[in-house]
Amino acid sequence: MTPMVGCEVARPLLTEFVDGELAVPSQVVVEAHVRACRTCAAHLEDLQAIGSMLRTRAGLMEPRADLAAMLARASWRAQAEQAMEWPVRLRRTFDDRRVAWSLAGATCGLALCVLLTAGLVAGLEQQAADSLAAVMKVLASPGSDQNPMQLDARMLPPRLAIATMPDDAPELSSLPTDDVVYAVAGTVTRQGRLVDYAILHDDRPDLGHRRGAAAFGLTPAEVVQAVSRLRFAPAQSRGESVAVNMVWVVARTTVRGTATPAELAGPWLAGFGRRRS
């Protein structure tokens, strides 16, 4: 026996019923309800009429279209698109070997031009240090290693970093006991190195037969070289390290007393005081 359902169950299923989309058991149940319910039967008839009218009208409205022309146009466009695809065009281009050789030659020529241009640019860049642009760039950055500043009172001057003195630095105390003064001009870089140095002043006593390296233990050149190996705390200007030109005076002086030994008493009669700077 077919179970009976109410309108609240059957009505929502009418759409699927009219489309034949219900499973067989549900189809049977809805069909039984529609036979018994006039309202739902009228609803179902309306749905069927709607479908029928739409189909009829659609059939009448179908225009006579030149479908063969449409097909021809679509095929032509598809073929044209395929012909315009770049792999096809490329393959077609290389079918002609003369074009391939021409392209290869042009590619080699282009590569040669690129290499030559790169070489020229590299050469120009090497000479750029002497160029006006490079000079202007250096001048625009005072305090750089290429454009050192002059020391003035507002700057913190470079200081010899004793702790960084190399182990093989010459002992200045190995200088002879005679007075000697060296003035060394140079540039202390931002990294604290002394560069572009030169001896400005060499004040050594005329010791006659003792003159020369042996007499002093160190030659002036060795002294300057030793000095150049020292490291400085770089000069500071407005809180930044700057390169500065400076003259460094290295001097040994001996202070001798004016009293005669006889006037002096004590065990240090033969000695004399020294001061280094």
Partner: peptide
């Protein structure tokens, strides 16, 4: 391709028209 278009062209055209 011609066969494919021929088999479906009316269906596509009518759907597009509706």
């Amino acid at each position: 391709c011609t066969e494919l278009v021929g088999a479906h062209q009316r269906m596509v055209f009518n759907l597009a028209f509706h």
